[in-house]
């Protein structure tokens, strides 16, 4: 059943993009700049897992927790040592984007020096594939889909039912007004970087288990996650995740008709189309684009 397999593949790849997009979108919504180095946070998490679990031989769960904590700390560091100082000087979001690309390239090359340029794979959890409606899927892929659906609901509840979440939405909506109302915007930005990078950590671990690990995979993931976020709604986290699933479907059904090398071109074309025609995304959530 080719259709069933395509749907399953779309769900898997959509979940991966969604995992990338959710943290990125959380950071974007409160900070209003494209944190491109989010891609490298994901890769860092993957390599940390490799280091702790495969090299140092720590238990798997402990390695995962450590990887997420380290990724989170690095995200916090990026914000406090670089972005916060740039923002204090009223640097435009373009400057912040360029700085973020600088950070991405810095860490990509650092990883290459430490771990080598070659592709690494963990080869954990090689359980037998299962068959659902004629489509083949591994248990790990089921976990990935479930985690991203859970995150989707958890983030929805977090942004609508907790104090920090509501403050984040207030800052996302109107930074100045939120600050007048007594919300500490710097604290909220800090939280968004810590939580967003922790999400990058979760994404990194799952992607490492599912795909191979290479120092430069962050850029590709980031472009896909960003495209997903733009399709959904860049400043509305659940929208960004749904958009990523849509991107997964577009890609997989696209390469049903086209040669598979066009996979990246499909994403780029969609990114293009949405930025041009519908920059607020299909969910049309608040002031996604300020210009």
């Amino acid at each position: 059943m080719i259709i069933a397999q395509l749907i399953v593949n779309s769900l898997i790849i959509g979940s991966i993009y969604g995992l990338v997009a959710c943290g990125f979108s959380l950071i974007y919504s409160t900070n209003r700049f494209i944190h491109f180095a989010h891609g490298v946070s994901i890769v860092i998490a993957g390599y940390m897992l490799l280091l702790f679990h495969s090299t140092l031989g720590l238990p798997f769960i402990l390695s995962c927790i450590l990887s997420i904590i380290i990724t989170s700390l690095i995200g916090w560091g990026m914000y406090n040592f670089i972005f916060a100082s740039l923002q204090k000087r009223n640097a435009s979001n373009v400057i912040l984007l360029i700085a973020s690309i600088g950070i991405l390239i810095f860490f990509q090359n650092l990883i290459q020096i430490i771990f080598g340029a070659g592709i690494k794979s963990m080869n954990l959890f090689q359980a037998k594939s299962i068959e659902i409606f004629g489509a083949i899927i591994t248990p790990l892929q089921v976990v990935i889909i479930l985690v991203s659906i859970c995150l989707f609901f958890a983030l929805y509840l977090f942004t609508s039912h907790t104090k920090i979440g509501r403050d984040m939405r207030a800052v996302a909506d109107d930074r100045q007004l939120a600050s007048i109302m007594g919300i500490n915007t710097k604290k909220i930005a800090n939280y968004s970087f810590i939580i967003g990078s922790a999400l990058a950590g979760i994404a990194g671990i799952l992607i490492t288990l599912e795909q191979n690990l290479s120092p430069f995979m962050g850029t590709n993931l980031m472009i896909k996650g960003f495209t997903g976020a733009v399709i959904g709604s860049i400043s509305f986290v659940p929208g960004a995740i749904l958009g990523s699933f849509l991107l997964g479907f577009f890609e997989n059904f696209g390469i049903w008709f086209l040669p598979s090398v066009y996979r990246d071109a499909i994403a780029f074309f969609l990114l293009f189309l949405f930025l041009l025609l519908k920059p607020k995304g299909i969910f049309n959530w608040n002031k996604g684009v300020k210009k």
Binding site: I34, I101, I223, V261, F268, L271, L276
Partner: peptide, 28 residues
């Protein structure tokens, strides 16, 4: 021709995506 209506960091991202596509064309 395609990007003349896009501005700021969105334009930056689209042009970055453009170089990404050219790279993947050269590769594939």
């Amino acid at each position: 021709l395609a990007t003349r209506k896009i501005k700021g960091d969105y334009l930056a991202l689209v042009t970055l995506g453009f170089s990404f596509v050219i790279h993947s064309v050269l590769l594939n």
